[in-house]
Structures are given as C-alpha cells and as structure tokens.
C-alpha cells in the first residue's frame, strides 16, 4: 500500500555544503538522488523514512573526471552518464557494461552510482565492479571527509559504514591495466534483478567479486589467492563455488547460483585465455 505523498517532507539544499549542514542538523533525513529505489519503496509502502534530503539538483556531485591518475565519479552520476563517459569506457569498460544492464533506459537516465551503492542491495550490478576495481568511497559530512576502501564499505545486509550525517560524494577508481570481465545473470534479457553478478580483474593480483550470493557483495579472496598461486580455472571454479554463500529466495536457488559462479569463472578463463 502506497505511502501518502502529503506525509513526506523534502529538504532542498542549494549546495553540497548546505546539504551537509542539513543532514548534520537532522541525521534522520534520507538522501534522495534519482529515486529509482526510494520511490519503489514509497509506492510499495516499504520505505521507512518520511523526511528526505534532495541531492538531485547538486550538479557538482555529477562530475566524472580524472584526478591524480584515478577516475573520480560523482555520486550523482547516472548510469547513462557513466556509459557515455569516455574516461570510464576507456579505463573501466566493465563499469560501463554494468550500467548498461541496469533496468531500461528510463532507469539508467535517473538511477545513480551513489544510489546503487548506498541502497546496498547485494544484487546491485555496479557493486562487484567497484569491488574488483578497488574503488574508494568518498564520504563527507559537515565536519570531515573519509575515504573508505569499497571492500570495507559494507558491513552486512544493507548495512554500511556510512554515518547518518554523511553523504557519499564520489567514488575513485585507480587505474586498471589488467584484463577485466563482467557478467550479469538475470534470466530475463533486460530489466532483471541479478541472480548472480560477477566482475573479475586478471593479472598478477587477480580479483573476483560476486553479487547476489551473500548478504553483501563479496570479494572471493580464497579464489583470488588460488588463482594468484597458479591454480587452474577448473580448480579456482571449485573454490569459488565453496566460497560463495548463496541462499534460496524468490528469484533463484542456492544450488543454481553456486554452479553458475563456478561456470562464470571458468568462462572468464577461456575468454581471456590465460
């Protein structure tokens, strides 16, 4: 049952600083960006908050640029903007690939990278990419800025280290020279929530991250170590199958997810011919 719109307040800051002050004064404010998650929750009556802080007009949070060799992507960059960014396409094509598979055009035009991460769904499609890219999450409050490695950002199911008075302002992705690979499995060819979503970076220090197989996106460190130690992809596949902790839910089964994880890693191996 839909939440009544009249019962909802919206604070509309004029600048990022203004926004940070508002949320410092009232940490119960829920930030909103493209609202593609928030409004689904409100329409279904499952979103708890009633007071909102509007980030959408804050242009400075939309920027995508190169800073000290890293790509910096503003929290408000939409999935469309990310796909269209030459910097992203040339350096982290798997991020563009992930954004291309999020919802349909309407969702990509509104949904943001910050929202995808802050929403914290284990099925978020950009999350495994950020995990293997070893991105840094830039959190800012009225008083300080913190830079958190993406891999320590999530602490549990939809739980993050973000404090109530902080906003995600940007993500920084260090240069990636190694081969990179991404695959989303959602059964329906478009507009599907992932049953398994995997990102892999090859090279000396291989990195494997998987979504939808645990309460949060996970880096498969045992698998990575095995690969780094020269394990074959068949061996690594078996390790990844034991490393993920999927469950049966509305959308799929634990068995299926486990097998697909193994298969995908094997596919990465054959496609990148290591």
């Amino acid at each position: 049952m839909r939440t009544a719109a009249a019962s909802l307040d919206l604070v509309r800051p004029r600048s990022v600083d203004d926004a940070l002050r508002s949320i410092a004064d009232d940490p119960s404010l829920a930030p909103i960006a493209g609202c593609t998650d928030v409004f689904v929750g409100l329409n279904a009556g499952t979103f708890a908050g009633t007071r909102f802080l509007d980030l959408w007009p804050l242009e400075e949070l939309r920027e995508i640029g190169i800073r000290n060799g890293a790509i910096s992507i503003g929290a408000l960059a939409t999935h469309t903007a990310i796909q269209e960014s030459p910097a992203v396409v040339s350096r982290v094509p798997i991020l563009a690939a992930a954004c291309r598979e999020i919802g349909g055009a309407q969702i990509q035009n509104r949904g943001t990278l910050g929202g995808n991460v802050a929403n914290g769904s284990p099925a978020g499609d950009t999350l495994p990419v950020l995990a293997v890219a070893e991105a840094v999450v830039v959190l800012r409050s009225a008083t300080q800025e913190r830079r958190i490695p993406f891999t320590s950002f999530f602490t549990g199911y939809r739980q993050t280290v973000r404090r109530p008075d902080e906003l995600i302002v940007a993500f920084e992705l260090p240069p990636l020279d190694q081969v990179q690979w991404f695959r989303k499995v959602g059964t329906r060819a478009a507009q599907a929530i992932s049953k398994v979503v995997m990102a892999v970076v090859g090279g000396e220090r291989p990195r494997v991250a998987v979504g939808s197989v645990a309460p949060t996106v996970i880096r498969c460190t045992r698998t990575e170590a095995a690969l780094a130690g020269g394990a074959t992809f068949d061996e690594a596949s078996r390790i990844v199958e034991s490393e993920v902790q999927p469950i049966d839910d509305l959308r799929s089964t634990a068995d299926y997810r486990r097998r697909v994880c193994g298969n995908l890693l094997r596919r990465f191996g054959t496609e990148t011919q290591r």
Binding site: R188, A190, Q191, A192, L250
Partner: peptide, 11 residues
C-alpha cells in the same frame, strides 16, 4: 513486476 518476469523486447 520486478519479480514476476514477462518477456521484454530483448526476450
């Protein structure tokens, strides 16, 4: 509709 999937254009 997010969990009951019917064919899209791409399906």
């Amino acid at each position: 509709m997010t969990n009951y999937l019917v064919p899209t254009t791409l399906d």
